[in-house]
Design a binder for these strands. Structure first.
Length: 428
RNA sequence: GGAGACGUGGCCGAGAGGCUGAAGGCGCUCCCCUGCUAAGGGAGUAUAGGGUUUGUAGCUCUAUCGAGGGUUCGAAUCCCUCCGUCUCCGCCA
């Protein structure tokens, strides 16, 4: 959420910046609602003050044994006025709140202006795509040929866009996960294990709700396990439970930055992306991901974004997978993000770079929703800045390893960094 | 799943319709005293929002005693629902 004070004082400037990311802010409506809010809120508070002081007077009179009947009569009419004023004030504030919750973050000044992913800017490349002396297969062909991938089984068990991995491939996915977690521990991250099911407050905190409910798997409430009326959801990314660790917390400045890494499955219904990447492991309803989260001092967040992106890159470098780093333009950046770097890995099967990690600085956008703050000495609490990045999407890394390490006969060489995690074997 | 107890400020802990944003203690900050240390004296010490304002200063108003409703002129206190914690039993990895 943006700072409401900023929206009041610099509404036109905010609207202009949001326009770059294709978001039309209804300036007139906000101005009118804010004017109403000011009037209604003031009125309600004045009436509350009036009631409080009169009630206090009644208490005093009663204590002195005076007749309070006339005082009660006086305050009688106040009650209905107050209820009316409070209801009107609450209603307009709720309306404003809902609009504000749907406004995306402002892009950082260093973010290139653009309207779509075509305007993203490549800022560096690492590694050279290998020159194969045979025609590269894609990961589906490679995995199916070896009997490691069974799409039909997944469909039988559940539905489309899930996968069953078998044997060495399943094991390699686990090995990759371990390798990533261990590497990030070396980078200074502390490993966390978190719930895969979260409540609405958590999803609002990181910005998935209220706008993106359609992308989430919501759990039904239909049996004796549901003793409450809360709506629960499967996590779309570990960002949600991990970042929410600091919700409603005031952190001691000396404890910043918090660096956390976790591995979870991610569940996405991906409504709207049907038809894209229907084949194979690229776009699934369920996938494994290792996620880095940092909670930092506001002055350090851009420094932290560079470092965090570097941590994700380190995984690709150790696996010797060619990739490039792209700065997302204003039109392609995520809802909550102020700046995002995507890492795109080379996939020989597609002869293209494909997203494998997304590293973002949310500045105080999530922190404001989360009420995640830090305190410096005796000063007032201040909002922290939050960042996260995939380090990496494990399923896609598996794809990248298969395709980049394939031999002509369909066997797969094991990246050196991964060999210790696979009992030292060199080829699958 | 069954039965009971309980959720108050950074922490501990009073309060049981009005004078309580909340006693007391601990912790913390500042000051005084004491030639180190220890002890002592004094003051201060929640968060958010609104109004005023050039101002995140000051002043002022409002809200917050797990959360949300309700009763009442007035709720930390009474009622309801939910969430959570603890103890005992059951079940279970």
């Amino acid at each position: 959420m943006l700072d409401p004070k900023l929206l009041r004082s610099e509404l036109a400037e905010v609207a202009a910046k949001l326009k770059h990311r294709g978001f039309e802010l209804d300036v007139e409506k906000i101005e009118s609602l804010e004017a109403q809010r000011k009037e209604l809120q003031t009125r309600a508070q004045d009436l509350q003050a009036e009631r409080n002081s009169r009630s206090k007077g009644i208490g005093k009179a009663k204590a002195q044994g005076e007749d309070i009947a006339p005082l009660l009569a006086e305050v009688e009419s106040l009650k209905s006025q107050l209820e009316e004023a409070e209801a009107a004030s609450t209603a307009v504030q709720a309306e404003i709140e809902e609009i504000y919750a749907g406004i995306p973050n402002l892009p950082h000044e260093s973010v290139p202006v653009g309207s779509s992913e075509d305007d993203n800017i490549e800022i560096r490349k690492w590694g050279e795509p290998a020159q194969l002396d045979f025609e590269a297969k894609d990961h589906v062909d490679l995995a199916e040929q070896n009997g490691w991938y069974d799409n039909d089984a997944a469909v039988k068990i559940t539905s489309a866009r899930f996968s069953v991995l078998k044997g060495p491939l399943a094991r390699m996915q686990r090995a990759l996960t371990q390798f990533m977690l261990d590497t990030h521990a070396e980078h200074g991250y502390s490993e966390v294990y978190v719930p895969y099911i979260v409540n609405q407050d958590s999803l609002r905190g990181t910005g998935q709700l209220p706008k993106f409910e359609a992308d989430l798997y919501k759990l039904g409430k239909n049996d004796e396990h549901d003793t409450n009326d809360r709506d629960l959801y499967l996590i779309p990314t570990a960002e949600v439970p991990i970042t929410n660790l600091v919700r409603d917390e005031i952190i001691d400045e000396a404890d910043l930055p918090l660096m956390m890494v976790g591995h979870t499955p991610c569940f996405r219904s991906e409504a709207g992306s049907y038809g894209k990447d229907t084949r194979g492991l690229i776009r699934q309803h369920q996938f494994e991901k290792v996620e880095m989260v940092q909670v930092v001092h506001p002055e350090k967040s851009y420094e932290a974004l560079e470092a965090l992106t570097g941590h994700a890159e380190a995984i690709l470098q150790k696996l010797e997978l060619p990739y490039r780093v792209v700065t997302l333009c204003t039109g392609d950046i995520g809802f909550s993000s102020a700046k995002t770097y995507d890492l795109e890995v080379w996939l020989p099967g597609q002869a293209a770079y494909r997203e494998i990690s997304s590293c973002s600085n949310f500045e105080d956008f999530q922190a404001r929703r989360l009420k995640a703050r830090f305190r410096s000495g005796q000063d007032k609490p201040q909002l922290v800045h939050t960042l996260n990045g995939s380090g990496l999407a494990v399923g896609r890394t598996l794809v990248a390893v298969l395709e980049n390490y394939q031999n002509a006969d369909g066997t797969i060489r094991v990246p050196k960094a991964l060999q210790p995690y696979l009992g030292g074997i060199e080829t699958l």
